Amino acid sequence: MYIKKILWAIAIIGLLIFGGIAYYIYGAMFQPNTKFENETAYVYIPTDANYIQVRQQLQPLLKDMGSFDALAKRKKYTSNIKAGRFAISKGMNNNEIINSIRSKNLPIKIAFNNQHSLEELAGRISTQIEADSVSLLNAMIDNTFLEKNGFTKATALGMYLPNSYEFFWNTSAEGFREKMLTEYNRFWNESRLEKAKQLNLSPDEVMTLASVVHEESKQADEQPRVAGVYLNRLRIGMPLQADPTLKFAAYQLPEYRDTVIRRVLNVHKEIDSPYNTYKNLGLPPGLIAMPDLSAINAVLNPEKHNYLYFAADAKRLGYHKFAKTLAQHNNNAREYQRYLSSQGINR
């Protein structure tokens, strides 16, 4: 009888212990363990992160780190960290959280436009993905990559078409570059290549001219007419005479850095630079800025006309007056110069 009581006692203690363990495991796995109020919190886990780094990000979000640690160790997550951007929903339990940050890397939308240089672009992208601006810029100007794909440092900006794209947050600099090359090659389909050929331009030249058109006019409805003027000049061997290229050339000089040129003067036309399209025939060596898709399409689908000149329209700012003769153009230009002077814009 005494032995039976001992056995019963042992059995009851065992059940209690088992129940306690089961309750702890249930709590560690299935009890809600979030303490944030938003519906969703995001965790950004860097490449090559260790569990301590992950824990530092999770600590402000979870009620009980001890139970999470125990389950993470049991599920071998502590030695199998995955990089990326992961979502944790309000009310998730530890098991759900671990499953999410282990296997549900979420893509993000990144966007860029109007970048004036590869340096600016690298800085813009570095605020949206894990790769830093230095590694992005180094990937963009890598000579081996550029030569292999037919670019130069002057034309490389044209590979990055302004738009929104889907990437994983932990995309490397090289991964970003390769996807943008794929997008660029997709953009230059048979139809666009044929249009460029009809204009006697290469894709690089289309992008270069589009950058000039875009800097000259931000108005999508006017860009085909502006493109038509420049193509007319190229066709007859006339200098491009594009003021935005003079500004670009000036900004490369120490005396013009950190300044804004609001009025192109004769002194700018004397700058010794391959980007000075008053002195040099044909297109400049490369892009002067990142053109919008509207400007690229304007070059590929220019308005057909006989205009050779245009000047900013003082009565319709942002637009231009177009002329077929130099005399008519000079009148338009003088009108705009008077407007600038009336506004106190002298440089």
Score class of each variant (00 low, 15 high):
230 Y>A: 03
116 H>I: 07
340 L>I: 08
150 G>I: 03
251 Y>L: 15
30 F>W: 13
64 D>I: 03
60 P>K: 00
83 A>L: 13
279 K>C: 07
200 N>T: 01
20 G>Y: 11
235 R>I: 01
315 K>F: 15
319 Y>N: 05
31 Q>S: 11
121 L>E: 05
113 N>E: 05
74 R>A: 15
86 F>E: 07
136 L>K: 01
343 Q>I: 09
333 A>T: 00
29 M>G: 06
225 R>Q: 05
203 P>Y: 07
217 S>F: 13
4 K>A: 15
116 H>G: 15
322 F>L: 07
101 I>A: 08
82 K>H: 15
41 A>H: 02
40 T>C: 09
27 G>C: 04
147 E>L: 14
5 K>T: 10
38 N>L: 12
45 I>H: 08
337 Q>V: 11
249 A>I: 06
333 A>I: 02
182 T>H: 02
19 G>R: 00
338 R>I: 10
318 G>T: 06
64 D>Y: 06
20 G>F: 13
218 K>V: 12
4 K>Q: 07
337 Q>R: 04
287 L>M: 15
106 L>V: 13
152 T>I: 04
29 M>P: 00
225 R>C: 02
163 N>Y: 09
250 A>E: 12
36 F>T: 05
40 T>L: 11
330 N>C: 04
233 R>W: 08
17 I>S: 11
156 A>C: 09
211 S>Q: 00
90 K>A: 13
324 K>E: 14
214 H>L: 05
229 V>H: 03
230 Y>G: 01
53 Q>R: 01
339 Y>C: 11
347 R>L: 11
52 I>E: 12
151 F>Y: 08
247 K>M: 15
65 M>Y: 12
183 E>A: 10
131 A>P: 15
222 E>I: 08
11 A>R: 00
153 K>Q: 11
78 T>W: 02
26 Y>L: 06
306 N>E: 13
237 G>A: 08
180 M>P: 10
344 G>A: 09
37 E>T: 08
151 F>M: 14
286 G>D: 05
25 I>A: 13
22 A>R: 04
76 K>L: 09
34 T>A: 12
251 Y>Q: 08
56 Q>K: 10
212 V>T: 07
143 N>V: 10
24 Y>Q: 06
92 M>R: 00
32 P>Q: 03
96 E>L: 12
302 P>M: 08
50 N>D: 15
278 Y>D: 09
297 N>F: 07
277 T>I: 10
23 Y>A: 05
181 L>D: 10
76 K>T: 05
2 Y>T: 06
298 A>W: 04
44 Y>I: 02
143 N>S: 15
341 S>P: 00
224 P>Q: 00
243 D>Q: 01
140 M>V: 06
96 E>G: 08
188 W>N: 03
209 L>N: 00
216 E>S: 05
13 I>S: 14
296 I>W: 08
340 L>V: 12
57 Q>S: 12
67 S>V: 10
171 T>Q: 04
98 I>D: 10
342 S>M: 07
184 Y>K: 00
161 L>Y: 02
37 E>V: 07
